[in-house]
Design a protein around this nucleic acid. Structure first.
Length: 321
RNA sequence: AGCCUAUAGA
């Protein structure tokens, strides 16, 4: 059973939920009885693949089989609902775990906030966060907000344009002595991007670095987007430079942000230069990038170029939406 | 052997 559980979790790690399911069935065919770890590993594989409805089915099957769900099994199921953007289901699971006498912990609340985040329910996420904080009032309580809790609510607020709320959370994080990390930084910078606060994005970057956070690709990409959205294409290109000097390889997100920044202010020439650079680095442009460039050609009245891009896109079999 | 978080795009 341990061997099969390991195999299933290995499948989960590579996103192969169908393989995971096969192993599970094979195991049962051998007459072995799955335990809570086996079930949780399978649910985790489904969660990572975004197969939340199947995850719920497997959980039910586990209960029917008389296997008691523990906290990690519940938490994994909540996470599966989060990946399926099913916050109401996630909420009801927390209720049912309480009924079953399993007390939700920090990870449970974090997963629940993540479900809210995915559904744009920033107020619900804040509500859950408030619950975590009040549990943490008791110095004995292990249930209290950690870095991931903050990151999740900050992201929930930031995504919905609640910049103020995100900043309040950031300050509270500092006050409470909860360490920030690269995820905090990229979430905050992205919150700035949503509302066009590119100067604050730069400031946050500087602050984070002062606090020992070493920005990663996500952080740089967020910064480039924030600058681009703010019409600061030159600063976006400068950030792109810095990113490469820091040793990060740009990806399709980087170029997408840069190209759209240049389409807005830096001119079509620069945008198409970046497009060529991207291809020369072996990064496959996607349909959105083509669409954006084609629109830009159209605005510049360059129909030949637009047509050339369109043919190229068809030749590469890229979906145009 | 199993649980939670972040980035772009008309």
């Amino acid at each position: 059973v341990v061997t099969y559980s390991s195999l299933i979790s290995a499948c989960a790690n590579v996103g192969a939920w169908e393989r995971a399911l096969e192993f599970f069935q094979q195991m049962e065919a051998c007459g072995l009885v799955a335990n809570v770890v086996t079930y949780t590993s399978l649910i985790s594989a489904l969660h990572r693949a975004g197969e939340w409805a199947r995850a719920v089915v497997v959980f039910k099957r586990m209960e029917v089989a008389g296997v008691q769900a523990d906290i990690q099994a519940y938490n994994t199921l909540i996470a599966a609902c989060a990946s399926g953007a099913a916050w109401e289901k996630a909420w009801s699971i927390v209720a049912s775990m309480r009924l079953a006498g399993v007390k939700p912990n920090t990870v449970s609340y974090n997963a629940l906030m993540s479900a809210c985040e995915r559904c744009g329910e920033w107020e619900r996420a804040l509500e859950v966060f408030g619950r975590l904080e009040s549990e943490g009032q008791d110095p004995q309580s292990p249930v209290r907000p950690n870095t991931i809790s903050y990151n999740t609510v900050i992201s929930a607020c930031g995504k919905e344009g609640r910049w103020e709320e995100a900043m309040v959370l950031y300050r509270s994080m500092k006050t409470k002595g909860v360490k920030m990390d690269v995820v905090t930084l990229s979430s905050l910078v992205s919150a700035c991007e949503k509302v066009g606060r590119w100067e604050d994005a730069l400031q946050l970057f500087a602050d984070a670095e002062k606090n020992g956070v070493v920005p990663n690709l996500f952080c740089f990409n967020s910064l480039i987007s924030a600058l681009g959205r703010g019409g600061q294409w030159e600063a976006a290109l400068a950030a792109f430079e810095r990113m490469q000097q820091a040793g990060f390889k740009p990806d399709v997100v980087t170029f997408s942000a840069l190209i759209s920044a240049c389409e807005q202010g830096g001119g079509f020439e620069r945008a198409s230069g970046l497009f060529d650079e991207m291809k020369s680095l072996g990064i496959q442009p996607n349909g959105y990038i083509y669409s954006g460039l084609i629109n830009a050609c159209e605005r510049a009245g360059d129909w030949d170029q637009a047509l050339r891009l369109f043919r190229e896109m068809q030749a590469e079999e890229i979906e145009f939406d």
